[in-house]
């Protein structure tokens, strides 16, 4: 992680020092007053990007489990429910889904006599969570299926019901195979949260777009934007690797 940044910095510095008129790093030069204002403006989107991503990830992690369970049922009908959900949701591109949720869903609510306004914040969260839940559901399903059938059978013979079997026997064992890919999935959510800019959410990408409109410096501003996502993702990656190491050492211990 450090190495990547160290490699990138001189490149940018070189470019910034260049006298060529095609470069205009001054717009985001924190050493100047106006540059610093711009940088602060760009970074101020970080809070919403993180907030949207975290809430969407939490919902997706819960929803994914709910969707995964029927996929593990004996009954063909329940498995069908799971398949239809997963295949449908994961085939819808994020942007159309975002438009559908933000512009379409309120109409459905209104038709049903409910006044549920969907603001950009929740519109983005619902869309990200829905879209991601198809993938987390598959992660749960694979993780739970990796636990030997004898565990479920033993739980049944000591009288545990379905939910108790999941809660006390299957999930605690499956979690070490589920957690690292779930954490990985979080990276996708962070990147996909950029689409929230389209419906007016003041997150990282929206801030960058707004600054580009006033400063006419797309290259420099979008480069900083990319670096902002890079930092976020590298932090999460480090977290995922830490988690994997911990899970791995648990397995041996």
């Amino acid at each position: 992680m450090k190495k990547t940044l160290i490699l990138l910095l001189p490149l940018l510095a070189l470019a910034g020092c260049s006298s060529s008129s095609t470069w205009g790093w001054y717009v985001i030069n924190p050493m100047t007053a106006s540059g610093w204002v711009n940088v602060k403006f760009l970074i101020s989107g970080m809070g919403d990007t993180i907030l949207i991503s975290v809430i969407a990830a939490v919902i997706s992690i819960a929803l994914g489990l709910v969707v995964a369970l029927p996929g593990l049922a004996k009954s063909r009908g329940w498995r069908m429910v799971n398949r239809v959900y997963v295949e449908l949701v994961r085939s819808i591109p994020l942007l159309p889904m975002l438009f559908w949720v933000f512009y379409g869903l309120p109409i459905i609510f209104r038709e049903m006599g409910m006044n549920v306004p969907i603001d950009p914040f929740w519109g983005a969260i619902i869309t990200l969570a829905l879209s991601d839940s198809a993938f987390t559901a598959e992660i749960y399903r694979a993780g739970i299926q990796s636990i030997a059938k004898g565990q479920t059978e033993a739980a049944q013979t000591i009288g545990l019901n379905y939910l108790q079997t999941m809660r006390y026997v299957i999930l605690p064992q499956a979690i070490r195979r589920i957690l690292p890919p779930l954490a990985n999935q979080f990276i996708y959510i962070v990147k996909m949260s950029a689409f929230a800019s389209v419906i007016g959410m003041q997150e990282l990408t929206r801030r960058a777009n707004e600054l580009v409109v006033s400063e006419y410096r797309p290259l420099e501003i979008y480069t900083l934007l990319i670096l902002e996502y890079l930092v976020l993702v590298l932090i999460i990656s480090a977290g995922v690797r830490w988690l994997e190491r911990r899970m791995g050492s648990d397995e041996r211990g």
Binding site: G150, Q151, E153, A155, G159, L160
Partner: peptide
Amino acid sequence: FQQFNLFPHLTVLENLTLGPIKA
């Protein structure tokens, strides 16, 4: 069972008390 099917994440004592406590 032939393969015991004990719960590997629980202690011996927890294996034995899970059913009585939860069920």
